[in-house]
Design a binder for these strands. Structure first.
Lengths: 153, 153
DNA sequence: TTGATATCATTTGCATACGAATGAATTTGA
DNA sequence: TCAAATTCATTCGTATGCAAATGATATCAA
Protein backbone atom coordinates (compact mmCIF):
# COMPACT_ATOMS: atom_id res chain seq x y z
CA UNK A 1 0.00 0.00 0.00
CA UNK A 2 1.46 3.36 -1.03
CA UNK A 3 1.80 6.37 1.22
CA UNK A 4 -0.97 8.00 -0.79
CA UNK A 5 -3.29 5.06 -0.16
CA UNK A 6 -2.58 5.24 3.54
CA UNK A 7 -3.42 8.92 3.54
CA UNK A 8 -6.70 8.24 1.76
CA UNK A 9 -7.61 5.56 4.29
CA UNK A 10 -6.94 7.98 7.10
CA UNK A 11 -9.10 10.65 5.57
CA UNK A 12 -11.91 8.16 5.15
CA UNK A 13 -11.59 7.06 8.72
CA UNK A 14 -11.76 10.64 9.94
CA UNK A 15 -14.79 11.58 7.91
CA UNK A 16 -16.58 8.35 7.16
CA UNK A 17 -19.75 9.93 5.87
CA UNK A 18 -18.42 12.71 3.71
CA UNK A 19 -19.12 10.68 0.60
CA UNK A 20 -22.23 8.79 1.52
CA UNK A 21 -25.20 10.91 2.31
CA UNK A 22 -28.11 8.63 3.04
CA UNK A 23 -31.31 10.46 2.32
CA UNK A 24 -33.44 7.78 3.95
CA UNK A 25 -31.76 8.52 7.28
CA UNK A 26 -32.28 12.28 7.27
CA UNK A 27 -34.91 13.68 9.62
CA UNK A 28 -36.59 15.69 6.93
CA UNK A 29 -37.16 12.67 4.76
CA UNK A 30 -38.38 10.59 7.68
CA UNK A 31 -40.76 13.32 8.78
CA UNK A 32 -42.10 13.69 5.27
CA UNK A 33 -42.76 9.96 4.98
CA UNK A 34 -44.28 9.67 8.44
CA UNK A 35 -46.57 12.54 7.60
CA UNK A 36 -47.55 10.93 4.30
CA UNK A 37 -48.34 7.72 6.10
CA UNK A 38 -50.51 9.49 8.62
CA UNK A 39 -52.47 11.36 5.97
CA UNK A 40 -53.09 8.05 4.24
CA UNK A 41 -54.35 6.44 7.46
CA UNK A 42 -56.53 9.48 8.08
CA UNK A 43 -58.05 9.28 4.61
CA UNK A 44 -58.83 5.60 5.08
CA UNK A 45 -60.92 6.43 8.16
CA UNK A 46 -62.32 9.82 7.26
CA UNK A 47 -62.85 10.13 3.56
CA UNK A 48 -64.74 13.39 3.33
CA UNK A 49 -62.47 15.68 5.35
CA UNK A 50 -58.75 16.37 5.21
CA UNK A 51 -56.62 16.49 8.38
CA UNK A 52 -56.36 20.31 8.25
CA UNK A 53 -60.13 20.61 7.81
CA UNK A 54 -60.76 18.32 10.75
CA UNK A 55 -58.18 20.22 12.81
CA UNK A 56 -60.09 23.43 12.16
CA UNK A 57 -63.42 21.87 13.15
CA UNK A 58 -61.99 20.21 16.25
CA UNK A 59 -60.37 23.42 17.44
CA UNK A 60 -63.55 25.40 16.85
CA UNK A 61 -65.43 22.79 18.84
CA UNK A 62 -62.90 23.24 21.61
CA UNK A 63 -62.64 27.02 21.82
CA UNK A 64 -65.88 28.21 20.24
CA UNK A 65 -66.12 31.33 18.15
CA UNK A 66 -62.82 32.88 17.07
CA UNK A 67 -61.48 35.04 14.31
CA UNK A 68 -60.09 33.35 11.26
CA UNK A 69 -56.48 34.33 11.94
CA UNK A 70 -56.75 33.40 15.59
CA UNK A 71 -58.01 29.98 14.60
CA UNK A 72 -55.11 29.74 12.20
CA UNK A 73 -52.56 30.38 14.90
CA UNK A 74 -54.25 27.78 17.12
CA UNK A 75 -53.87 25.11 14.46
CA UNK A 76 -50.57 26.28 13.00
CA UNK A 77 -51.78 27.62 9.69
CA UNK A 78 -50.85 30.95 8.21
CA UNK A 79 -53.52 33.41 7.13
CA UNK A 80 -53.51 32.41 3.49
CA UNK A 81 -53.82 28.72 4.24
CA UNK A 82 -56.52 29.00 6.87
CA UNK A 83 -58.60 31.12 4.53
CA UNK A 84 -58.73 28.33 1.98
CA UNK A 85 -59.61 25.72 4.59
CA UNK A 86 -62.38 27.84 6.09
CA UNK A 87 -63.74 28.74 2.67
CA UNK A 88 -64.17 25.06 1.84
CA UNK A 89 -65.73 24.25 5.21
CA UNK A 90 -68.11 27.14 4.74
CA UNK A 91 -69.05 25.95 1.26
CA UNK A 92 -70.00 22.64 2.83
CA UNK A 93 -72.08 24.23 5.57
CA UNK A 94 -69.88 23.09 8.44
CA UNK A 95 -68.89 26.56 9.59
CA UNK A 96 -70.44 29.98 9.29
CA UNK A 97 -68.80 33.38 9.14
CA UNK A 98 -69.80 36.71 10.62
CA UNK A 99 -68.24 40.11 11.14
CA UNK A 100 -66.92 41.22 14.48
CA UNK A 101 -69.12 44.07 15.59
CA UNK A 102 -66.43 46.07 17.32
CA UNK A 103 -63.28 45.28 15.38
CA UNK A 104 -64.36 45.47 11.79
CA UNK A 105 -61.19 43.80 10.55
CA UNK A 106 -62.06 40.48 12.10
CA UNK A 107 -63.96 37.64 10.50
CA UNK A 108 -65.54 35.40 13.12
CA UNK A 109 -65.82 31.69 12.52
CA UNK A 110 -68.36 29.40 14.14
CA UNK A 111 -69.42 25.80 13.83
CA UNK A 112 -72.86 25.25 12.38
CA UNK A 113 -75.11 22.63 13.97
CA UNK A 114 -74.09 20.30 11.19
CA UNK A 115 -70.44 21.10 11.80
CA UNK A 116 -70.81 20.38 15.50
CA UNK A 117 -72.49 17.06 14.81
CA UNK A 118 -69.72 16.13 12.40
CA UNK A 119 -66.91 16.88 14.87
CA UNK A 120 -68.57 15.00 17.69
CA UNK A 121 -69.18 12.03 15.46
CA UNK A 122 -65.60 12.07 14.15
CA UNK A 123 -63.64 12.58 17.36
CA UNK A 124 -63.75 8.88 18.34
CA UNK A 125 -62.58 8.00 14.85
CA UNK A 126 -59.79 10.54 15.12
CA UNK A 127 -58.64 8.79 18.27
CA UNK A 128 -58.47 5.53 16.34
CA UNK A 129 -56.41 7.26 13.67
CA UNK A 130 -53.88 8.38 16.26
CA UNK A 131 -53.77 4.87 17.64
CA UNK A 132 -53.26 3.26 14.27
CA UNK A 133 -50.55 5.75 13.34
CA UNK A 134 -48.69 4.92 16.54
CA UNK A 135 -49.32 1.19 16.21
CA UNK A 136 -45.80 0.25 15.07
CA UNK A 137 -44.40 1.86 18.23
CA UNK A 138 -44.35 0.35 21.68
CA UNK A 139 -46.23 2.25 24.35
CA UNK A 140 -42.99 3.64 25.70
CA UNK A 141 -41.73 4.64 22.27
CA UNK A 142 -45.03 6.29 21.46
CA UNK A 143 -44.91 8.22 24.71
CA UNK A 144 -41.41 9.45 23.94
CA UNK A 145 -42.41 10.47 20.45
CA UNK A 146 -45.48 12.36 21.58
CA UNK A 147 -43.69 14.11 24.40
CA UNK A 148 -40.72 15.16 22.33
CA UNK A 149 -42.47 16.65 19.41
CA UNK A 150 -45.37 18.02 21.38
CA UNK A 151 -42.83 20.30 23.04
CA UNK A 152 -41.96 21.84 19.72
CA UNK A 153 -44.07 24.97 19.67
CA UNK B 1 -77.23 14.31 43.99
CA UNK B 2 -79.85 12.56 41.95
CA UNK B 3 -79.51 9.08 40.55
CA UNK B 4 -79.17 10.63 37.14
CA UNK B 5 -76.28 12.80 38.29
CA UNK B 6 -74.53 9.77 39.70
CA UNK B 7 -74.93 7.98 36.43
CA UNK B 8 -73.43 10.92 34.58
CA UNK B 9 -70.46 11.02 36.91
CA UNK B 10 -69.89 7.34 36.35
CA UNK B 11 -69.97 7.73 32.62
CA UNK B 12 -67.45 10.55 32.83
CA UNK B 13 -65.18 8.47 35.00
CA UNK B 14 -65.28 5.58 32.59
CA UNK B 15 -64.52 7.62 29.53
CA UNK B 16 -62.62 10.62 30.78
CA UNK B 17 -61.58 11.86 27.36
CA UNK B 18 -64.78 11.47 25.46
CA UNK B 19 -65.41 15.17 25.77
CA UNK B 20 -61.97 16.63 25.56
CA UNK B 21 -60.15 15.93 22.37
CA UNK B 22 -56.82 17.70 22.48
CA UNK B 23 -55.71 18.40 18.97
CA UNK B 24 -52.23 19.42 20.09
CA UNK B 25 -51.66 15.91 21.41
CA UNK B 26 -52.65 14.04 18.26
CA UNK B 27 -49.88 12.47 16.20
CA UNK B 28 -51.07 13.99 12.97
CA UNK B 29 -50.92 17.49 14.35
CA UNK B 30 -47.52 16.90 15.90
CA UNK B 31 -46.16 15.43 12.69
CA UNK B 32 -47.49 18.34 10.69
CA UNK B 33 -45.86 20.84 13.01
CA UNK B 34 -42.57 18.97 13.18
CA UNK B 35 -42.52 18.87 9.41
CA UNK B 36 -43.27 22.58 9.20
CA UNK B 37 -40.43 23.29 11.58
CA UNK B 38 -38.02 21.22 9.56
CA UNK B 39 -38.96 22.91 6.30
CA UNK B 40 -38.38 26.24 7.96
CA UNK B 41 -34.92 25.19 9.19
CA UNK B 42 -34.13 23.85 5.74
CA UNK B 43 -35.12 27.11 4.09
CA UNK B 44 -32.93 29.07 6.48
CA UNK B 45 -29.89 27.08 5.37
CA UNK B 46 -30.69 26.40 1.72
CA UNK B 47 -32.73 29.18 0.25
CA UNK B 48 -32.72 28.25 -3.41
CA UNK B 49 -33.92 24.64 -3.22
CA UNK B 50 -36.87 23.00 -1.50
CA UNK B 51 -36.46 19.78 0.51
CA UNK B 52 -38.11 17.67 -2.23
CA UNK B 53 -35.85 19.22 -4.86
CA UNK B 54 -32.78 18.53 -2.79
CA UNK B 55 -33.99 14.98 -2.13
CA UNK B 56 -34.22 14.38 -5.87
CA UNK B 57 -30.72 15.73 -6.48
CA UNK B 58 -29.21 13.80 -3.57
CA UNK B 59 -30.80 10.55 -4.69
CA UNK B 60 -29.66 11.07 -8.27
CA UNK B 61 -26.17 11.70 -6.96
CA UNK B 62 -26.41 8.46 -5.04
CA UNK B 63 -27.83 6.12 -7.68
CA UNK B 64 -26.96 7.82 -10.95
CA UNK B 65 -29.20 7.76 -13.99
CA UNK B 66 -32.76 6.51 -13.40
CA UNK B 67 -36.16 6.88 -14.90
CA UNK B 68 -38.41 9.60 -13.56
CA UNK B 69 -40.87 7.21 -11.92
CA UNK B 70 -38.09 5.07 -10.47
CA UNK B 71 -36.59 8.18 -8.91
CA UNK B 72 -40.00 9.04 -7.56
CA UNK B 73 -40.37 5.73 -5.80
CA UNK B 74 -36.88 6.13 -4.31
CA UNK B 75 -37.78 9.45 -2.76
CA UNK B 76 -41.42 8.68 -1.97
CA UNK B 77 -43.10 10.88 -4.56
CA UNK B 78 -45.86 9.80 -6.87
CA UNK B 79 -45.56 10.25 -10.63
CA UNK B 80 -47.43 13.53 -10.78
CA UNK B 81 -45.40 15.11 -8.00
CA UNK B 82 -41.99 13.98 -9.20
CA UNK B 83 -42.73 15.33 -12.65
CA UNK B 84 -43.18 18.83 -11.29
CA UNK B 85 -40.03 18.63 -9.21
CA UNK B 86 -37.94 17.35 -12.11
CA UNK B 87 -39.38 19.93 -14.49
CA UNK B 88 -38.27 22.72 -12.19
CA UNK B 89 -34.82 21.22 -11.68
CA UNK B 90 -34.47 20.87 -15.43
CA UNK B 91 -35.53 24.48 -15.99
CA UNK B 92 -32.68 25.48 -13.69
CA UNK B 93 -30.15 23.31 -15.45
CA UNK B 94 -29.52 20.97 -12.51
CA UNK B 95 -30.77 17.83 -14.23
CA UNK B 96 -31.10 16.75 -17.84
CA UNK B 97 -33.58 14.37 -19.42
CA UNK B 98 -33.19 11.81 -22.17
CA UNK B 99 -35.21 9.00 -23.64
CA UNK B 100 -34.51 5.39 -22.83
CA UNK B 101 -33.32 3.82 -26.06
CA UNK B 102 -34.92 0.44 -25.51
CA UNK B 103 -38.02 1.19 -23.48
CA UNK B 104 -39.50 4.21 -25.16
CA UNK B 105 -41.88 4.86 -22.28
CA UNK B 106 -39.11 5.80 -19.90
CA UNK B 107 -37.70 9.25 -19.32
CA UNK B 108 -34.17 9.08 -17.97
CA UNK B 109 -33.00 11.68 -15.48
CA UNK B 110 -29.39 12.66 -14.90
CA UNK B 111 -27.54 15.28 -12.91
CA UNK B 112 -25.80 17.93 -14.97
CA UNK B 113 -22.29 19.01 -13.99
CA UNK B 114 -23.87 21.99 -12.32
CA UNK B 115 -26.33 19.76 -10.52
CA UNK B 116 -23.55 17.51 -9.30
CA UNK B 117 -21.59 20.49 -8.00
CA UNK B 118 -24.66 21.79 -6.23
CA UNK B 119 -25.40 18.49 -4.45
CA UNK B 120 -21.84 18.03 -3.32
CA UNK B 121 -21.68 21.57 -2.05
CA UNK B 122 -25.00 21.20 -0.21
CA UNK B 123 -24.61 17.79 1.41
CA UNK B 124 -22.56 19.13 4.36
CA UNK B 125 -25.20 21.81 4.86
CA UNK B 126 -27.93 19.18 4.74
CA UNK B 127 -26.17 17.36 7.55
CA UNK B 128 -26.26 20.55 9.60
CA UNK B 129 -29.98 20.84 8.89
CA UNK B 130 -30.58 17.34 10.25
CA UNK B 131 -28.52 18.21 13.30
CA UNK B 132 -30.36 21.44 13.95
CA UNK B 133 -33.73 19.77 13.52
CA UNK B 134 -32.79 17.17 16.11
CA UNK B 135 -31.16 19.72 18.41
CA UNK B 136 -33.98 19.79 21.00
CA UNK B 137 -33.61 16.03 21.48
CA UNK B 138 -30.95 14.28 23.50
CA UNK B 139 -28.69 11.92 21.60
CA UNK B 140 -30.65 8.98 22.88
CA UNK B 141 -34.01 10.50 22.05
CA UNK B 142 -32.80 11.42 18.57
CA UNK B 143 -31.61 7.86 18.02
CA UNK B 144 -34.98 6.50 19.07
CA UNK B 145 -36.80 8.91 16.82
CA UNK B 146 -34.67 8.12 13.79
CA UNK B 147 -34.84 4.39 14.30
CA UNK B 148 -38.57 4.30 14.81
CA UNK B 149 -39.64 6.33 11.88
CA UNK B 150 -36.92 5.09 9.59
CA UNK B 151 -38.59 1.70 9.87
CA UNK B 152 -41.72 3.09 8.35
CA UNK B 153 -41.39 2.13 4.71
C1' DT C 1 -49.84 -13.84 -32.70
C1' DT C 2 -52.86 -11.18 -30.43
C1' DG C 3 -55.79 -9.70 -26.85
C1' DA C 4 -55.63 -8.55 -21.96
C1' DT C 5 -52.62 -6.43 -18.48
C1' DA C 6 -49.30 -3.76 -16.75
C1' DT C 7 -46.07 0.05 -16.72
C1' DC C 8 -44.37 4.88 -17.65
C1' DA C 9 -45.44 9.35 -18.17
C1' DT C 10 -48.58 13.26 -18.63
C1' DT C 11 -52.47 16.07 -17.60
C1' DT C 12 -56.27 17.86 -14.87
C1' DG C 13 -58.41 19.05 -10.68
C1' DC C 14 -58.31 19.82 -5.96
C1' DA C 15 -56.11 20.83 -1.37
C1' DT C 16 -52.54 22.34 1.54
C1' DA C 17 -48.53 25.60 2.47
C1' DC C 18 -46.07 29.85 2.53
C1' DG C 19 -43.86 34.43 0.99
C1' DA C 20 -44.97 38.85 -0.47
C1' DA C 21 -47.87 42.59 -1.63
C1' DT C 22 -52.10 45.08 -0.65
C1' DG C 23 -55.91 47.39 1.67
C1' DA C 24 -58.75 48.26 5.62
C1' DA C 25 -59.08 49.01 10.43
C1' DT C 26 -56.99 49.52 14.91
C1' DT C 27 -53.50 50.63 18.25
C1' DT C 28 -49.43 53.02 19.74
C1' DG C 29 -46.51 56.64 20.90
C1' DA C 30 -44.39 61.00 20.66
C1' DT D 1 -54.08 64.15 18.40
C1' DC D 2 -52.22 62.30 14.55
C1' DA D 3 -48.69 59.99 12.09
C1' DA D 4 -46.39 55.50 12.41
C1' DA D 5 -46.67 50.90 13.34
C1' DT D 6 -49.50 46.83 13.87
C1' DT D 7 -53.09 43.65 13.01
C1' DC D 8 -56.64 41.20 10.15
C1' DA D 9 -57.84 39.53 6.01
C1' DT D 10 -57.36 38.91 1.02
C1' DT D 11 -54.96 37.98 -3.21
C1' DC D 12 -51.26 36.34 -6.17
C1' DG D 13 -47.61 33.35 -7.32
C1' DT D 14 -45.12 29.22 -6.62
C1' DA D 15 -44.43 24.45 -4.92
C1' DT D 16 -45.67 20.17 -3.14
C1' DG D 17 -49.02 16.10 -2.89
C1' DC D 18 -52.41 12.89 -4.49
C1' DA D 19 -56.50 10.77 -7.16
C1' DA D 20 -58.17 9.84 -11.50
C1' DA D 21 -58.20 9.74 -16.41
C1' DT D 22 -55.53 9.24 -20.63
C1' DG D 23 -52.18 7.76 -24.11
C1' DA D 24 -48.15 5.32 -25.42
C1' DT D 25 -45.48 1.41 -24.95
C1' DA D 26 -44.23 -3.29 -23.09
C1' DT D 27 -45.20 -7.65 -21.30
C1' DC D 28 -47.88 -11.70 -20.54
C1' DA D 29 -50.75 -15.50 -21.67
C1' DA D 30 -53.82 -18.20 -24.15
Amino acid sequence: MSAEDVKLKLVEAEEPDENDYRLQEQVGFILRKAHQRHVSIFAAHIADLTPPQFAALAKLHDVGETSQNQLGSLIAMDAATVKGVIDRLKARGLVELSKHEVDKRRLLVNLTAEGRDAVERLIPIAREITEETLAPLSAKEAAIFMRLWAMRG
